[in-house]
Structure formats: structure tokens, C-alpha cells
């Protein structure tokens, strides 16, 4: 008896381990993941730039074929521009003239924000999760510089900030902009506005399964001015005085050439 006991213990332990593994597999069969890839890490804005569509490819990892077949995976892809401080001002009428009176400052406001989704927002998940994830042009959290200020005012200016950004084409939503190419391969198309800001943009992909947020993945993208534009911009900002001299010199040269070519008198 005594001799058989260890074996029995071992057998029990083994059985428990197997059972544990099986049940773990049933609850969480290799968690799903999401990956995205950008075809380029740099985008150069040239003289003719008038906006562009940026395509981002991505893949689901360990996707459940069953869930995928029923179309219950959803992906939201965001391209977020660099964050800046922004002042929102409101004009009011003073003696008949419209004057900027009230203002509210916000910190870390993404200059641009472009979203693409597989389906309409309300079909993917609950409004609460959008707010928690700070996801979507209408849900991203805009942080007032002075959070102590009057709440109705902050709410009003936050709304105005979003509206102005949407109107300028800098905040945009592309419902249906994410397409599944196969069960776990997808393609997202996000809009780059004509006056997209230069700097580091962040591409983020959010995976939802049955309306629940599962995983997020991100990649970086550098948008810069190309060639001539970049040279001019750099010169103007780093060597303002020299740039000024150059502008003056050019203007004089054009004026002088004009008087020679056309002989005004």
C-alpha cells in the first residue's frame, strides 16, 4: 500500500494539471492580439500636397475562426497627430462689433485625429467604453489647462473645439474604412488632411470582440515637409534674421528685374 501511494499522488497531480490546462484553454484559448504595420515610417509633404489617404495593414493574432466567421471582431484604427496647447476663443458682440472675449486653454490637444472603423460606432461597443478608451473624435478627452474653471464653460468650449476641428477636416471619421481582407487580415484607410501638421503621428488599432475591448497596438509615423518646404520652414524658424534678409533681397531683385524687363518709364 505504502509503496503505491506516491504513484497515486503523482497520477492525481497529473490529472489535476491536465484538467487545469484544459479548463484554462476553454476560458482563454490563446488570447487574441492585434498588430499593425505601416508601409512607411516617414511621409513627406511636398509643394503639391492636398491631403492623402493613408493605408494601414494589420492582422489579428489567434483569432477564433468561429467569431471571425460571424463577423463579431471589430477594429478601430486611429491616426493621431502631435499634441499641442490650443486656445479656443469666443467672439461676442460689444457695441455692435464682434470681439474675442472669452477663452479657454486646452493642453495636449491632438492637432489632427482621423478614425476608421469596421462598422458604425454604435454597433461596435457601448458609449461608456469609447469614453474610457478616449476613442473617436467625439470622445477623445480634451484636457482643460484650468480644470477648476466653471464646468458649463469648459463643456461649451470643449464642444466648440471638436466642432472647429471637424469643420477644418482635421478630425475625421471614416465608418467602414477598415475592411477585413481575410479572417485575420485587415486594411484601414485613414484620411490625412491637406494641412496635416508635421511631427510624430501615432497610429493605433483597437480590437473589439463581441462588443468588448480586447487589445490595442500602435505604431509611429513621422510626417515632415519634404525638400524645399522643409528647408524654407527650417530656415525661417532657426535662422529668422537670415531668412528675413533673404526675403527682402528676393523682393528687391524681383522689383529690379521688373523695372528692367518692362521699363516702366
Amino acid at each position: 500500500m505504502a509503496a503505491r501511494l506516491p504513484f497515486l499522488r503523482f497520477a492525481l497531480a497529473l490529472a489535476a494539471m491536465v484538467a487545469g490546462l484544459v479548463s484554462a484553454a476553454a476560458q482563454n484559448p490563446n488570447p487574441e492580439g492585434i498588430q499593425i504595420g505601416l508601409s512607411t515610417e516617414n511621409i513627406s509633404i511636398t509643394a503639391g500636397f492636398s491631403g492623402a489617404d493613408l493605408t494601414i495593414f494589420g492582422a489579428l493574432e489567434n483569432a477564433d475562426p468561429e467569431v471571425a466567421r460571424q463577423g463579431r471582431y471589430d477594429v478601430i484604427v486611429v491616426l493621431e497627430g502631435p499634441a499641442r496647447r490650443i486656445v479656443v476663443r469666443r467672439k461676442d458682440r460689444v457695441l455692435g462689433v464682434w470681439i474675442n472675449l472669452q477663452s479657454e486653454e486646452f493642453e495636449n490637444v491632438p492637432v489632427s485625429y482621423s478614425v476608421a472603423t469596421t462598422r458604425p460606432f454604435q454597433d461596435i461597443t457601448e458609449p461608456v467604453s469609447y469614453r474610457q478608451l478616449s476613442l473617436g473624435a467625439n470622445n477623445i478627452y480634451l484636457q482643460p489647462a484650468d480644470a477648476e474653471g466653471s464646468q458649463p464653460t469648459i463643456a461649451e468650449f470643449t464642444k466648440a473645439l471638436r466642432e472647429r476641428k471637424v469643420a477644418a477636416g482635421l478630425y475625421s471619421e471614416n465608418v467602414g474604412g477598415v475592411r477585413f481582407l481575410s479572417q485575420n487580415l485587415f486594411r484601414a484607410t485613414v484620411r490625412l488632411a491637406p494641412d496635416a501638421p508635421v511631427g510624430t503621428h501615432k497610429a493605433r488599432a483597437f480590437l473589439f470582440k463581441n462588443g468588448m475591448f480586447v487589445k490595442e497596438s500602435s505604431a509611429q509615423l513621422e510626417i515632415r515637409k519634404a525638400g524645399f518646404e522643409q528647408a524654407v520652414f527650417r530656415l525661417a524658424h532657426n535662422h529668422g534674421f537670415f531668412y528675413g534678409l533673404l526675403s527682402v533681397g528676393f523682393a528687391m531683385a524681383v522689383g529690379w528685374l521688373g523695372s528692367i524687363v518692362f521699363r516702366r518709364d
Binding site: I86, V88, D92, F157, E163
Partner: peptide, 14 residues
Amino acid sequence: LFIRPDNVYSLSIP
């Protein structure tokens, strides 16, 4: 100056 602007809000970077 005197007509109500299309949008009374404007954005600027400090």
C-alpha cells in the same frame, strides 16, 4: 466686424 460671424469660436496655438 459687424455681422455675426459664421462661427463665433476660433482656435489658435498660444
